[in-house]
Design a protein around this nucleic acid. Sequence first.
DNA 1: ATCGTTTTCGGAACCGTTTCCGATCTGCGG
DNA 2: CCGCAGATCGGAAACGGTTCCGAAAACGAT
Lengths: 340, 340
Amino acid sequence: MAVTIKDVSAKCGLSISTVSKAFNNYADISAETRELVHRTAREIGYYPNAIARTLKTNRSYNLGVLFQEERGTGLTHSFFASVLDAFKSEAEKHGYDITFINHNISWTGMTYLEHCRYRNVDGVCVVCANFYAPEVVELVASDIPVVTIDHAFSNRSCVLSENIEGMKALVAHAAALGHRRIAYVHGEHASVTENRITGFYRGLSEHGIEANPEYLVDSVYDSPEAGAKAIKQLMQLPEPPTCILMPDDHTALGALAAAAELGLRVPEDLSIGGYDGSRITQMTHPRITTVVQDSKCMGKQAALYLIDRIENPRTAGSEMGMIPTKLLAGESIGPVPERK
Amino acid sequence: MAVTIKDVSAKCGLSISTVSKAFNNYADISAETRELVHRTAREIGYYPNAIARTLKTNRSYNLGVLFQEERGTGLTHSFFASVLDAFKSEAEKHGYDITFINHNISWTGMTYLEHCRYRNVDGVCVVCANFYAPEVVELVASDIPVVTIDHAFSNRSCVLSENIEGMKALVAHAAALGHRRIAYVHGEHASVTENRITGFYRGLSEHGIEANPEYLVDSVYDSPEAGAKAIKQLMQLPEPPTCILMPDDHTALGALAAAAELGLRVPEDLSIGGYDGSRITQMTHPRITTVVQDSKCMGKQAALYLIDRIENPRTAGSEMGMIPTKLLAGESIGPVPERK
DNA sequence: ATCGTTTTCGGAACCGTTTCCGATCTGCGG
DNA sequence: CCGCAGATCGGAAACGGTTCCGAAAACGAT
């Protein structure tokens, strides 16, 4: 069925090796021959078989993407989906396809690394996972090129979002509007979270606000329910906060609903901040004040680092890309209400 | 670096073919030998190389996923992301990985079909594309197993969402609340849209409501901006609708904001309906009344059809899965306001 | 005409598997 | 003790390419 290199070689009366070399731009092929080969290839619709090529060259032009499985969200998570989309586009622009690396149920029980070898991926982008899991560590310690997103390993390239600055800017924005009782409901522990907490505290101290431990609430990402719970908990404090910063936009959306349930107007009675800069923040009423993470840039940069590492194994070093964040002021953080 | 079948054969003093057969459960291998092979394989960490296996067997255990490229949304679209996620999970459960099929810029200009052959995918799931594009038709007409989502080709398996019934149910819900001036802002033309329009008209006629051509607005999916524009246009009619159904939940969210801008309360002054049943509908205030599409089920079913077709080429026919939809009543469609 | 050099091409091994087919060995009835 | 069937295993070709290396041809210089 499929047309192979043999068909091309037969059709133009050349040897297989000559056709192969013509296709791979070897120097010892005359211009006319090269032209002939390409022409007949086009005629009979020949494309080199990636599988055979990979077997021989050990280059698959396939990049692995490691997504966490623990939480159900997967591809549904808008921030990661956006990062992935950009990664994919950039990879494809360079001739790479992508495959997901994971070990779902009923699979032969391969580790991430084994899966990578099994599929011969040229490199892996670890987008979102428990970076401390032994399996991830094993992968990162292997000889396979790796780039990580939002987590830095030594001697591995990574792309980081400027979380400290982003959070600081958000706190500064709230402080500028007079808020001093600012709470932060944060997500699971990870580099991202730690940086945001750092940014949160720095933002507070830069505005001379004393940190109140009760205002730092342990919660999870991407859970409007948990967000709502946190809100209710915070608002029952003897001295409730006037501004609550949520771990992400989805949770902030849930917080808006929770506030409405409590009979609180946003931002007149309570200010709420999000994080990520997803599209929905601009569709709500009030629009959610958030910190935009440049997910497109992050995904693209990760692809560039990884491909560079793959194609220039000796010259390419381990880069660290810091992608700036940007405050997007909506209406959900308003002036602090008069003290009653 | 990688450990091959040779290492296993050397380690247990058996021939390569024996090891291979032991791994593939051939009958002419004694139980002890099989056990020995598996044990030493586990010891030295051997996994068969998928590439070599594919080259020989012409089975890649890789499924292609065809996503549209025209609109920027890509993976970001929550409905498709959800379908894809379910498809992926089910595929992985059966030992398949997935790769995206497309023809992005700077690529050698392969068609979808050529890309499929290039990567030796065992089958393709066409999730979201222009089903009338020549390239898609070429793929569907090929010998590669194909399953389509939300579009039916003859003699190809497909998974359809019950759009007619879903839309009818939504109209019925509005009618039950007294609405008779119901508008529908629909997305681009595709099977989905046509079915929904059909359902819309049937719903109207079943409740004795005469269709008003001005109440059917041509718009696009997933565009809050376009949604907002449509709302404003509709509300300027001499007899504006009391209930507006949007093409999807994101657009409905945009419509909510647009209504707020116009000073209209939802649902007191204007009712708005969504479609898809995405998570955000339950996080807004008011919650958006929508039609839930069972995206998980759709993705899973598509994977099952495709794999069945691949693994049982003769017995498997072309199936058509109709996935039921469910009305999810929020608060965004309320009783019709008193005629002023 | 001879020789060395450069250009251009083909032969063949190899990548890691699968699988057909033949070889060996065992047990058993006659 | 022979022959034969069944059980086990190994040899080798093949999948579709790449790439090393040698051979042939062409060419220029002497």
